[in-house]
Simulated assay, not measured.
Amino acid sequence: MNVTTRGLTQAAGLAAATAGAIFIAVQINHPPTDSYLTQTNQWVIRSFAKSLMCGLAIAGITGIYLSQVRQMKALGLVGYLVFAAGYLMMLPTEAMAAALLPGLTHSQPGFVNDVVVTAAGGHPVGNIGHMQVLFNLTGACYMVGGLVFGIALFRAHVLARWAAILLSLSTVATASLAFLPDTFNRPMAVPEGIALIGLGVSLWRQQRGSDRAPTAAAQSTTVRAAPVR
């Protein structure tokens, strides 16, 4: 099996689309934010799924950026680094939610509740240490990085521009969750998922198109070079 740049880029497109699909799927019938749910299988499965989503998103946006480095210029580099950092910090948070919080639910319920509430954008009652800083940095990188990365994608005019616009708007819009009821948390994640799917599919289709172009050109050359009888 030959590993090619085109193949890796197509895989990145599929990774981004899959990440978007998981992002939407985990929002369906999501239970309320409550520490006592952390001990259930549903909590663990959803948290592991979110961890997988973060990993796929990092791979996806990396491929998206590398496929159009020249067109995205310095703005794209800044947007990519900040946006990827947001997902990179989100990854261990979700892994911790799946692997550590269930075991602490009975022994330290107050701490668990504060972590879950803070992760959802609320305010903790007790002290959760440096995790508060981690959550703040994650949110800032996610929103600012998504905005800048989406703008750079739109200006590059390579992939679907509607998806680039949706990416910028959906990531910035999450800032409003600090003032909206908890019922808005899940619906607000759907546009981001759709944006990732759109960008991933657009990248995959672009690479498929570039794969067919050389073949068509070669066939055309063969026809022209054929001797006349």
Rank of each mutant, 00 (worst) to 15 (best):
Y87W: 15
L91V: 01
Q71K: 14
C141T: 10
S170V: 02
G126T: 07
L169A: 15
S168H: 12
S51H: 04
I64L: 13
K73F: 02
A163G: 02
I58Q: 04
H130K: 08
L66P: 01
N136R: 09
F149I: 03
V116K: 06
T138I: 00
L56M: 05
G110H: 08
A74V: 09
H157C: 01
V172F: 09
R161Y: 05
A74P: 00
A175K: 09
I151A: 08
D114M: 06
G79A: 08
A160Q: 13
F149P: 00
N113C: 00
S176L: 14
F111K: 04
T118S: 12
F83V: 05
M89S: 05
N113R: 12
H123D: 07
Y142E: 11
G150W: 13
A97D: 15
V148H: 06
F149M: 08
A97C: 02
T174R: 15
L75K: 06
A173T: 04
H106L: 12
M143Y: 06
A97N: 14
A59D: 01
I165K: 03
C141D: 12
T174Q: 13
F179W: 12
T118H: 09
A99G: 00
Y87D: 04
L100Q: 11
V172L: 15
Y80D: 05
F135H: 03
A119G: 13
L56N: 03
V125F: 07
R155Y: 08
A99M: 12
A173C: 06
G122D: 12
F149L: 05
I61S: 02
L104G: 03
L153V: 01
S51V: 02
V158D: 09
Q108M: 13
I61H: 04
G86F: 03
G86T: 02
R161G: 00
S107V: 13
L91N: 03
G110I: 07
T105V: 12
I64C: 02
T105M: 10
I64E: 12
A97G: 14
G122L: 03
A164K: 08
A95F: 15
M143L: 10
G129N: 09
S168W: 11
M131L: 15
D114L: 04
G55V: 04
L100M: 10
V115Y: 14
A97V: 01
A160T: 10
M96V: 10
Q108E: 15
T138K: 10
H106K: 12
S67Q: 07
R155T: 06
M96H: 04
Q68I: 01
I151L: 13
L166C: 06
F135A: 03
T171R: 11
M53F: 05
H106Q: 14
L75F: 02
L167C: 06
A156Y: 09
K73E: 12
L177T: 03
L77P: 00
T138S: 04
V112Q: 10
T105C: 01
Y80M: 00
G60H: 05
A59C: 07
A152M: 07
A163W: 11
L88T: 15
F154T: 01
I165Y: 13
L137W: 14
Y65Q: 05
V116C: 05
V158Y: 07
A160R: 14
L100P: 00
T105Q: 15
I64S: 01
L177Y: 08
M143R: 15
H123I: 11
V117I: 14
